[in-house]
Nucleic acid binder design. Structure first.
Length: 225
DNA sequence: TGCATTTGACCACT
DNA sequence: AGTGGTCAAATGCA
């Protein structure tokens, strides 16, 4: 199982690194004229100033060049705390897209957001449910926020996840009993730690991995994977 | 009662 | 005009 997890992680990371490099090349060469226009128009700050001065006039459509996407069976396992702020059915997609922003957006003005969408072709029972997760923006919040995220304190948790009403991204459901969750979490924590030690997770800050507290369906998806 | 999620509406972008 | 992203009131839960 560890090997599977590591293989999975390696694939995702390789994908991300390739994506990252290709993005850099695109930025350098400005291959896409459309992107170029967008870039120039945003750089001249005519619209951007309006967006920053008035949050109500910020850009609704995101630029693809400041985001990172990946496919994962466990979309909420990224060590960050997210709060869901929207869900929407996307054209030609079977499953709705969920919108999350950093829990500390208000407290620490963290601009990081992510979207999670289940892939259309991942509904079969022979392979795990896969999700496309797209991260936008950088975390500017203090990831620890008073928590020691790098330890085995899986019982101590963040303010929101210690709350029994914690969000989907952090909660354990009653489908798995608590002990099972703890055991699985410890296994997964070690896997995450191995990934960190192997420097396999550059695009994201693995030091931010909070104590795991997965939903049953996330565990199920991960174990199936 | 307070906090997180849900969901329809609104708005920006293409 | 269609689509995607965000807002905010309503709702649910402990």
């Amino acid at each position: 199982m560890f090997q599977n997890i590591l293989d999975c992680s390696s694939k995702a990371i390789t994908e991300l690194q390739l994506h990252h490099q290709s993005d850099a090349r695109v930025d350098d060469a400005l291959v896409d004229d459309k992107k170029r226009v967008r870039k120039i128009s945003s750089d001249d700050c005519v619209k951007e100033e309006g967006a920053t001065s008035n949050p109500n006039h910020q850009h609704k459509r995101r630029r693809s060049d400041d985001s990172v996407s990946l496919e994962t069976p466990v979309p909420h396992y990224d060590g960050r705390q997210w709060r869901k702020y929207g869900q929407k059915h996307i054209n030609k997609a079977k499953h709705p897209r969920s919108y999350y922003r950093c829990t500390y957006r208000q407290e620490q003005d963290c601009k990081a957001t992510k979207t999670v969408q289940q892939q259309d072709d991942s509904t079969g029972t022979d392979h795990p449910v896969m999700y496309t997760v797209v991260y936008h923006g950088q975390h500017t919040c203090n990831e620890n926020n008073g928590i020691d995220s790098g330890t085995d304190d899986s019982e101590t948790n963040t303010p929101s996840s210690s709350d029994s009403r914690s969000s989907i991204s952090t909660a354990c459901t009653d489908l798995y009993d608590h002990q099972t969750s703890l055991n699985d979490n410890k296994l997964l924590e070690k896997s995450a730690d191995m990934i960190t030690k192997n420097c396999m997770y550059e695009p994201f800050d693995m030091t931010a991995f909070a104590p795991l507290d997965l939903d049953s369906w996330e565990l199920d998806a991960l174990l199936r994977f």
